[in-house]
Every structure is written in structure tokens, then in C-alpha cells.
Design a protein around this nucleic acid. Structure first.
Length: 839
DNA sequence: AGCACGCCGACT
DNA sequence: GTCGGCGTGCTC
């Protein structure tokens, strides 16, 4: 600013200038301040999507977090490049929710934004190159080398190329230097192409041109002209048949889908001619990806028990914000939910129902769809991005005031929630582990409800200890639904001792005699059987019978999982795979055998033991596709399958009357998992899968295979004695300082060098010890899996006093410790991950 | 997280 | 000699 005049002007623009603190989807713990161009000043506000440049070249979508007039002092703010919408995409309540989540779960708000916005609402930018129009190879003073020449010639045929295109044209991977050199030689230009990813679904429709639609005479004239053009006449007749415009000219506005003609095998070229001659016209209509369905008028009839529960829920929610609805499987929770949802909607509030992923394809959603029709949004993890954006926009526009969805539906743009329901609240899949934000959706839902001054209902047949504890201490309301709905009775449990059968030589392919006989009987009676084993694949690993050699992953500290179907061994942590060797690489023996049990192997065993039975398997591998799960369910429901083998998945939502036998292959595998929650989970999983047995007219049979049948937990499961199990386990939790008596934070340290990882973990651990907060620290220890993807892993567990703000205090100090550590030159490349309430 | 800048080994 | 490895510093 050399002249005075310029300086004055500059100061004036600065003092009256507007700035925006923008949330950027990058893991950096702050907002970034951009200048708001004068012409956008009046159109912009909190929650608007904007395009900004970040760094040298990246173009990103940001969300306005704050608008102010304070110019930054230390740097020059870049301008906001553009505004994407004329409305806020994210509301202020959401921004508060993001900020809370970032703080509570120790991550950056940008990471929350990344998880929250469907990627269809985030622009992507891609670097592309084009020919410099002023470039002329004949007059250019710079000679090109071979590669540059090849690239330039490839570019001559196209208007633009991406970096990836260049890589494939040249067949080498480092193209940056070549591009840079071409830019210097003024042969090409580099630019950033920004594209909106969401595209609405468009339907091509056909209608009569205006002049014929309302004018019968004119239309008759057309028919006369077409009298010798049979194909065109046929099309026109077809149209009039579908859309009787002469009866009601208004019908013409919507016309019909173009596909009607092609489906009827009418000539496409004649249709084209009619359009060209202006008799018909073609137009595009933006349509919804979701089919319209009318809500039913049907009245929900509640049993006396259910009515009573609804009344209790309402009374208790008068002075409690959160309530636990404890109802065993099949106790009719769905109807209770429907009643409460209807009432909340009638009062003008929005409603969110969270379900675990695997429960989302089951009959409950079907039932809700029947009742609420397309007024209900469904938010799936298997939905495409476009579908997600449509649900988002549906909520934003107020068209959808009720959404059923997985944990990420917490982020939808609700502005007036009245009720949040978390069903199957004990499910561990409500916790997100990777990537950040590592949030617990059930807990976050309670926070979200609080922000909206809404009520939360947690539903479960086997509540998490946290929730049950909160209910018993009066923090939450509590309503219990004791009886099974209808006539169904509790199943009959049997413990089958694997070791005893093995000694007596009665164990065949891992099936005890009791289980085999029970299956046989069910098959005879044409009843169905469920076999539960919470491990997919064929077998956990392969081992050499002679020397005990076990194949391990080269990059991770785990054994490779054996997949029989392609004779491959795979690492479930990094994806490394290898063919099964024919002989043991350690001793040369050819006695390599699979050890352990996966669903795939059980399926195989069943077809050997019961060759006449029709077997199916339900696990992650057989339900990957969008409708895979549903297809299997239908198959089983229709009776085309006698025995269904599966993981966790079969414990949810299977609601068929013909299952009389449920087998738990290996209860010990759940029970002896090295984790304080193992008992709780075993109780939940076994109870859940047992709940699938026996309905209406017949008592079911549940056979639990174990090597230690005399454990108390089995008797509590058999009695359905959740409360006593709880009281006993809680004694241990209190004695050994586990949740819900303390808050747990897990700090993971990762580095490719074992020594560095260990030293960094130790240093941080010691520093954490000095944080003045009441706590117990464990570790740092080598992770349960000591190495993943060539990174060595150490973990510290910190159990923090629940009282006061000890946890908040600790997290704050921890953050600055980590910053200190990372600033130290020895630990610069060490990764520290904080997981709050890791479970 | 990406990405640019900057300083040391094995190759046309 | 250079290409290209990844250490380190920054992003409004």
C-alpha cells in the first residue's frame, strides 16, 4: 500500500468487512477464517455450505460456523469462493451437537463434519490439466522431452485429463515433475474441477404439445395427417389411451413416462419424429428415489399390558428425560413405539428411531413402513449416497419428520426433535471405532435429545449395564414389559458338555449328541433350526499337526484366517492374503489342518451330518449385497431352509414360527473373551438367540454347547434372571473399577518402529500420571493385536473417577500432553488415538 | 490429513 | 549428475 489513498480504502473495507469462521472437513482442531465477498454478505449465514480454497490448490466444501467482523491479525484471509445453496444445510443445533461430539470424543470438528455430511453434499475437487491455448509447439522456445511429448499428444485429442489419466497414458506413477515442467514451458494449464456429487433422479416424460392438448380440432387434424403413418398413429393412440386428455386436459401436464412406449415395443424413431414435428414433447421431471407409499389408516390396538406400559412411560417422562424400556423379545415393543411416535408427530415434533444395522432390514421396519408410509425416512448404511442426500433433504425441507436409521442418522438436520428412541440399546454396533469421531450413538442420542429438549427412550430385552444402572439409580425412568406377547412361552434350555461327549466319542464334527438328536427330531417334524456361532469364515487358522506351525500375517501380529472357498488365508486386519501352502514351510509335513470353528465350516459339517437337510448360512460374507440379508430372511421364512447357520445376524429380527431348536455351538468363545464385558455380552447374545426358539404353540429348545457347564451365568441365563446376574456382575465391576463406576479412556500409540512406539507410549503414560485427577492407570501394554499394518501398537487404559468434571479435566490435559509429545522431534511421526468410552 | 519444500542414496 | 525417498511444517 504505497499511496495514502489506497491505505484508507483498505482500512475501510477491513473495518466494515465480514468474515466467516468455516468448518473444513480436515482433522485440524480449529475453524478457518475466510473473507465474505461483499455480494454474498446478505445471503450467507451459519450452516451454509460454501466453497473455499484450502492450501495451495485444494478446493473444499466448508460449513459456516460463525459470521463476524473481526479481521484476523496474523494472516490475510482468503475469500469464500462461492455459496452452494440459498439456505442453511446445517442448523445451529447441529453445529452445537458437532462441537459437543468433538469435545467429548476428543476429535476435531472437521472430522465430525466429515462423518455427518453425506459425501454427496461435499464437493470434491480434482486436479486436471488442459492444453494451454496460446501454446504453439513450433514457436515455443522450450524443447520437450519424450514423455512430455507423449502426454501433450494424448492431451491434443481430449479437452482435459485427470492426473490418473496421465499416469495410465505414461505408464509411470510419478508424473508431478513432468506436469510441472510442462506448466513452466507454458504448454499446459492446471485447473481444479469442482463437481457437485449429488444428482437428482430424473425421469423422461412425454406429453402432447400445448396446442393440441386443449384443442380437439387440432388433434383431429393431426390424426388425419398421420393416416398413412401407422407407427406414429399407433404411438399417439397409445398416449391418448394412457392419458385421456379429451376428458380432462389437465392430465396432459404430467404426461407419461417415456418408457411406456418403449416397453410397449413401439417404434422409438417414430416417437422421435412426433417430437421433432412438435406434436409430442419430451421433458425431464425430477423424481424421488423412494417410492411413495400411503400411511395406513389402521388403528394400532394395544393389549392391556402395552397400554399400561405406554401410560407408565408417559408419566415417567414427565420428570425424566430418558427412560429404559426393558422388554423381552416379542413383548410387543414395536406397537408401543408406534403409539408414542404417532403422538409425538401429531404434536408437531420430529422423531428419530435408531436401530443397529442388522436390525434395519427386518420386519420392524416393514411394520413401521406399513403404518407411516413414505412419511417415514429410512437411513441405511447400504444406501447409495444419492439416497442419503435425499433423506437429508427430506428432513431439511420438513417432508420427513420421522426417520428410522443407523447410528449416523443422528446427524440428519432435525430442528425440532420431540422423541428419540434407541432400540436394542445394548448393541455394541452403536459405537463407532474407526475413524474419528469414535462416538457411542446411544449416548450421543441422549445428548442430541437434550439439545432439542426432547425425550429419549432406550429399548432392550437385555439392557446394557450402564443403562440398567442409570435406571436403578433413578437417573432414567424404567418400565418393564414382563410377558411375551401372545401365547409364546419361554424356551427350554439344555447345557451340552462338549468335553464329556468328546470322551465318550459322541462328539461328531463339533456337534454333541444332544444337539444332533434335537436337530434330527426337528427335521423329522419339519421344523426349523438355528445354529449360532459368532465367527465367520471357515476356520480361524491353519496349523501343522506335526510341528504346530501357524501361518501369520507379514504386516500384523495375528494368524491368518482360513477361507476354504478359494483356498486362501487372509488377514482380517490389513487384507493381506496368501494361498494355502501344500506343505508346512517349517517342517515340510503335509499334515496341515484347519483349527477352530467358523460358520462356513459348520455349514459344511451340517451337510455331512444331515445330508437331507437344506442348509443356509447368514453372515457378513453372504449378506454383503444390498438385499442379501433380506433374501436370506425370506428364504428362511418361506420354509425353503431347514437349518440356518449364522453369526450375530441371526439373533436379530428373525420372527418365524417354525424355529423349535436353537444351538449355540461354542458358548465358551463368548464367555472367555478377555474383556470385562464378556459376561454381559454372553448373557445378551445367548438370551437373544434363544429368544428365536419356540413361538406361539410350541416350546422351543435351546442347546448350549460348553466345556464348563457348571458356571453360574448359564443358570442365570436359563432362569432369565437378568437382575441377579446384573447384581452379581456389578459387584465385580465395582470392586475392580469398571464402568459404570468409572469412566474409561483408552489411549493408543502407534508407530512403525517398535522401540519408538514403546517409548512414546511410556512417556505419554508417565505424563498422564501427573494429571491431577482421581484415576487408575493401566499399561502401557502391547495391544491385544501387537501390530497392525506394520504399525506397532501400545495401549494405556485410564479409569477415571465419575464424580464432577474429572473426565473433562483429564481429556483437556491429555490433549495438550499429546500436542507436547508430537512437538517433540523423536515422536513426530507417532500416532496417538484417544478413544473415550471405548467399551 | 494432504501437500509442498528440502536434503541424502542408487540409477538412466 | 538426477530421480525420488520421506522428514517437517503449514493450511485461514
Amino acid at each position: 500500500m504505497e499511496n495514502l489513498f489506497g491505505e484508507i480504502i483498505d482500512q475501510e473495507t477491513e473495518s466494515t468487512g465480514f468474515f466467516a469462521d468455516v468448518i473444513i472437513p480436515v482433522p485440524i482442531p480449529k475453524l478457518f477464517t475466510y473473507k465474505i465477498p461483499r455480494n454474498l454478505k446478505d445471503e450467507i449465514g451459519i450452516g451454509f455450505r460454501v466453497i473455499v480454497q484450502f492450501g495451495q490448490k485444494k478446493i473444499l466444501t466448508g460449513i459456516i460456523g460463525k459470521v463476524h467482523q473481526k479481521p484476523p491479525v496474523a494472516y490475510d484471509a482468503k475469500p469464500i469462493l462461492d455459496l452452494l445453496d440459498n439456505h442453511a444445510t446445517v442448523n445451529p443445533l447441529q453445529i452445537r451437537f458437532w462441537a459437543w461430539m468433538a469435545e467429548y470424543y476428543c476429535c476435531n470438528i472437521g472430522e465430525v463434519m466429515n462423518a455427518a455430511l453425506p459425501s454427496g453434499l461435499k464437493l470434491s475437487s480434482e486436479s486436471k490439466i488442459q492444453l494451454n491455448p496460446t501454446y504453439d509447439s513450433d514457436t515455443s522456445p522450450y524443447p520437450l522431452d519424450d514423455r512430455e511429448d507423449i502426454l501433450l499428444q494424448a492431451l491434443a485429442n481430449k479437452s482435459e485429463m485427470t492426473y490418473d489419466d496421465c499416469v495410465s497414458v505414461l505408464g509411470i506413477k510419478s508424473i508431478h515433475g513432468i506436469i510441472k515442467s510442462l506448466v513452466i514451458k507454458e504448454a499446459i494449464l492446471v485447473f481444479e474441477q469442482v463437481k457437485e456429487k449429488y444428482s437428482p433422479k430424473v425421469e423422461t416424460r412425454i406429453r402432447l404439445s400445448k396446442e393440441y392438448a386443449s384443442d380437439k380440432k387440432a388433434l383431429e387434424g393431426v390424426f388425419q395427417e398421420l393416416s398413412n403413418k401407422a407407427k406414429q398413429e399407433e404411438i399417439l393412440l397409445k398416449y391418448l389411451q394412457e392419458v385421456p386428455v379429451y376428458k380432462n386436459p389437465d392430465l396432459n401436464t404430467k404426461g407419461i413416462e417415456k418408457s411406456v412406449f418403449t416397453d410397449a415395443n413401439l417404434s422409438a424413431s417414430s416417437l422421435k419424429t412426433l417430437i421433432k414435428n412438435g406434436i409430442l414433447e419430451e421433458y425431464k421431471l425430477i423424481i424421488s428415489r423412494f417410492e411413495k407409499e400411503e400411511p395406513s389408516e389402521e388403528e394400532i390396538i394395544l393389549s392391556e399390558l402395552q397400554l399400561d406400559a405406554v401410560a407408565q412411560i408417559k408419566t415417567q417422562l414427565e420428570d425424566k428425560n430418558t427412560l429404559l424400556l426393558h422388554g423381552i423379545t416379542g413383548s410387543g415393543k414395536t406397537e408401543i413405539y408406534i403409539t408414542l411416535i404417532k403422538e409425538a408427530l401429531a404434536g408437531g415434533s420430529q422423531v428419530l428411531l435408531l436401530l443397529p444395522e442388522i436390525a434395519l432390514t427386518t420386519h420392524m421396519v416393514g411394520r413401521l413402513r406399513q403404518v407411516f408410509g413414505s412419511d417415514m425416512g429410512v437411513f441405511h448404511s447400504k444406501y447409495s449416497d444419492n439416497e442419503r442426500v435425499e433423506v437429508w433433504n427430506g428432513v431439511l425441507s420438513g417432508k420427513l419428520s420421522f426417520v428410522v436409521g443407523v447410528r449416523s442418522s443422528l446427524f440428519l438436520p432435525f430442528d425440532s426433535l420431540g422423541l428419540v428412541i434407541v432400540d436394542e440399546e445394548h448393541e455394541s454396533s452403536f459405537k463407532q471405532y474407526e475413524p474419528a469421531p469414535r462416538f457411542q450413538a446411544r449416548d450421543s442420542a441422549i445428548m442430541l435429545a437434550w439439545l432439542h429438549q426432547a425425550k429419549t427412550i432406550l429399548g432392550s430385552a437385555t439392557p446394557s449395564f450402564e443403562s440398567f444402572y442409570n435406571a436403578r439409580t433413578g437417573k432414567y425412568g424404567y418400565v418393564s414389559l414382563g410377558k411375551r406377547y401372545g401365547e409364546a412361552q419361554l424356551p427350554e434350555y439344555h447345557l451340552a458338555d462338549i468335553l464329556v461327549d468328546k470322551k465318550k466319542n459322541l462328539l461328531k464334527l463339533d456337534f454333541t449328541r444332544l444337539l444332533r438328536e434335537s436337530i434330527q427330531e426337528a427335521l423329522k417334524n419339519q421344523e426349523q433350526v438355528l445354529i449360532f456361532q459368532n465367527r465367520r469364515g471357515y476356520a480361524p487358522y491353519i496349523s501343522c499337526e506335526d510341528c504346530g506351525w501357524i501361518p501369520e500375517c507379514e504386516h500384523c501380529d495375528v494368524s491368518l484366517t482360513y477361507h476354504q472357498f478359494n483356498e486362501e488365508m487372509r488377514c482380517h486386519y490389513c487384507g493381506f492374503k496368501e494361498k494355502v501352502p501344500s506343505t508346512c514351510p517349517a517342517c515340510g509335513s503335509n499334515k496341515l489342518s484347519a483349527v477352530g470353528l467358523g460358520t462356513e465350516r459348520i455349514e459344511e459339517s451340517i451337510s455331512l451330518l444331515f445330508p437331507e437337510a437344506r442348509v443356509a448360512r447368514m453372515d457378513l460374507d453372504t449378506t454383503r449385497s444390498k438385499y442379501g440379508y433380506q433374501r436370506l430372511l425370506e428364504e428362511f421364512g418361506s420354509g425353503n431352509v431347514d437349518i440356518l447357520v449364522g453369526t450375530q445376524m441371526i439373533t436379530k429380527g428373525l420372527d418365524f414360527g417354525k424355529v423349535t431348536v436353537v444351538g449355540v455351538m461354542d458358548a465358551d468363545r463368548i464367555l472367555f473373551f478377555p474383556d470385562f464385558r464378556a459376561g454381559e455380552r454372553a448373557f445378551q447374545q445367548i438370551t437373544q438367540v434363544a429368544g428365536r426358539a419356540g413361538r406361539r404353540d410350541k416350546k422351543g429348545k435351546v442347546i448350549i454347547q460348553t466345556r464348563k457347564p457348571d458356571q453360574q451365568i448359564f443358570h442365570q441365563i436359563i432362569q432369565g434372571d437378568y437382575k441377579n446376574f446384573y447384581i452379581q456382575e456389578m459387584g465385580d465391576r465395582q470392586r475392580f473399577f469398571y464402568p459404570p463406576f468409572v469412566k474409561i479412556i483408552k489411549v493408543t500409540t502407534r508407530h512403525k518402529d517398535y522401540k519408538v512406539a514403546e517409548r512414546a507410549a511410556r512417556s505419554l503414560h508417565n505424563l498422564m500420571g501427573d494429571i491431577p485427577v482421581k484415576k487408575i492407570m493401566l499399561g502401557p501394554e502391547k495391544g491385544l493385536i501387537g501390530k497392525i499394518k506394520n504399525q506397532f501398537i501400545f495401549e494405556s487404559i485410564i479409569k477415571i473417577d465419575k464424580a464432577g468434571n474429572a473426565q473433562a479435566q483429564f481429556k483437556q490435559d491429555l490433549q495438550s500432553l499429546i500436542n507436547e509429545m508430537v512437538a517433540h522431534k523423536d515422536f513426530r511421526s507417532v500416532r496417538f488415538v484417544v478413544d473415550v468410552d471405548p467399551y
